[in-house]
Amino acid sequence: MLIDANYIKGATQKLGDRLAYIMEEGRWMEGRKISIDEKIERDKGEATKAKAKYDAAVDKLEKLMARKREMQQKELMTAFENSDKSYEEIMRFLNE
C-alpha cells in the first residue's frame, strides 16, 4: 500500500497543531493544568491511604507475632511438663 506524501504532510501538520495547542494551554501529559494546591490535596489523600494501609499491615504483623509468642509459650509449658528435669534445673539452664 502506497501512502500519499500529501496525506503524511497533512497528518503531520494536524499533529503538530494539536501538540502546540496542548503545550500552549499547559495541558502536557495530564490533559489540563493542575494547581499546586490540587497537587498537595491529591498527595495528602495518597499519603493518608498509604498510612492506613501501613497501619493495617503493622496491626496484622503484631497480631501474628503475639500468636507466635502464645504458641511458643504453650510449647515451652508442654516441654516443661513432659520433662524429667526439676524446676531449679530448668531455671539454672535458662539463666546461664
Rank of each mutant, 00 (worst) to 15 (best):
D37S: 11
R18P: 01
E75K: 03
L19M: 02
M91C: 00
E62V: 14
K9P: 00
L64F: 13
G26S: 00
N82T: 08
Q72R: 09
T12C: 15
E75R: 01
N95F: 10
D59C: 05
D55S: 00
R92C: 05
I3F: 00
A56H: 00
A79N: 06
I36P: 14
R42T: 13
D55M: 03
Q13V: 08
I40S: 04
K51S: 08
G16A: 10
Y7S: 10
Q13I: 04
F80V: 14
R67Y: 11
Y87P: 03
E89N: 00
N6P: 02
A50H: 13
A11M: 11
M71L: 14
Y21C: 10
A11S: 12
M1Q: 01
Q72M: 12
M71Y: 08
E38V: 08
E89Q: 04
E38F: 06
I40F: 07
E30N: 10
N82G: 12
E70I: 09
Q13M: 04
S86N: 01
Y7N: 07
D84L: 06
D37E: 12
K14S: 07
E24P: 01
S35G: 08
A52Q: 11
A57G: 06
L19D: 04
I34H: 08
E75D: 13
I8H: 01
A20V: 10
R67I: 02
K33Q: 08
M65I: 07
I36S: 12
I34D: 11
N6I: 02
I36D: 15
D43E: 14
L64M: 11
T48P: 09
M77R: 14
T12S: 03
V58L: 06
G16I: 09
N6H: 01
A5Q: 13
Q72L: 15
A50I: 12
